[in-house]
Design a protein around this nucleic acid. Structure first.
Length: 268
DNA sequence: CTGTACTGC
DNA sequence: GCAGTACAG
């Protein structure tokens, strides 16, 4: 029946139109003005969330995290760093606050006081300078890990600056970072905040038609070695952490990207 | 940039 | 607990 086929076709078209409209509406409601006419998607950082081994995922306005109560820190912090978010505005450093969004509540910053370790940002303050609100939001204890000062201000700082460089150059990157939280780590403070022996960082670039991924695994000690010497397959970080990074990607693409450890498409 | 520490209220 | 200031890699 031709008439029936035509009616079905029209019905399908209408359904697609309705869903598209709703989809676009939803997208629009996610748009948020950050500053002076710049429109950014709010919570784009939630598009590529890793899995959680602790079932304790928290969404902040400008980054998300999965908290490990056993280690009193995040197992991962994930966010998008857009090219136009890399700015040099200076903000005063606020005090670290306990993250009220974490059900079990994060550690108090006093655990770090006189511990000999830095309150090392996972989502760096330097990546959220585009607004005071975004900057201050990184000063939650759920976003820090004990780091040796020479490591934090040394090779880790170098890597964070490289991420900002890539974000500008590649029109934005997605970042997932944290410490390797294994058993029987040394701890600091009354709440026993674990001191990771390794830190990892994964960068994902989807600005071109061929997406790119880069994983770093760095021992918790300063090093003057070139950063690319710490590049590892993301699969290795997944084995160490039990976390599945970028599960939203098409399996074939994900497998290919996470198996490799080539940095030839990344300029250091 | 990445941070800590001290003084003083 | 918070502000201001000084100092270090």
């Amino acid at each position: 029946m031709k008439r029936r086929n035509l009616l079905s076709l029209i019905a399908v078209i209408i359904l697609i139109a309705v869903f598209s409209f709703e989809y676009l509406q939803e997208k629009e409601t996610q748009d948020v003005i950050i500053s002076e006419g710049q429109t950014e998607k709010e919570n784009t950082n939630t598009y590529f969330l890793p899995t959680s081994t602790t079932n304790s995922v928290v969404h902040h306005k400008f980054y998300s995290l999965s908290y490990s109560e056993a280690h009193e820190q995040a197992e991962w912090v994930a966010y998008e760093l857009k090219a136009n978010q890399v700015v040099s505005t200076n903000h005063k450093r606020p005090y670290f606050q306990i993250d009220k969004s974490v059900k079990t509540e994060g550690a108090h910053w006093r655990n770090y006081k006189n511990s000999g370790y830095d309150r090392g940002h996972l989502c760096p303050a330097g990546d959220r300078k585009f607004s005071k609100e975004a900057h201050d939001e990184t000063f939650l204890t759920s976003n820090i890990s004990p780091q040796e000062h020479e490591f934090n201000s040394g090779i880790w700082n170098r890597l964070e600056q490289k991420v900002r460089y890539w974000a500008k150059r590649k029109d934005g990157v997605f970042v997932v970072t944290g410490g390797i939280l294994s058993d029987e780590l040394k701890t600091i403070g009354e709440e026993h905040v674990a001191i990771p022996e390794y830190f990892y960082k994964i960068i994902y670039d989807q600005s071109s038609k061929s997406p790119k991924m880069l994983g770093f695994l760095i021992p918790h000690e300063n090093s003057n070695e070139a950063l690319y010497k710490f590049v590892v397959p993301v699969d290795q970080i997944e084995e160490l952490t039990g976390i599945d990074f970028f599960p939203q990607l098409n399996d074939k693409i994900e497998n290919t990207l996470e198996r490799q450890s080539s940095y030839k498409n990344w300029s250091f």
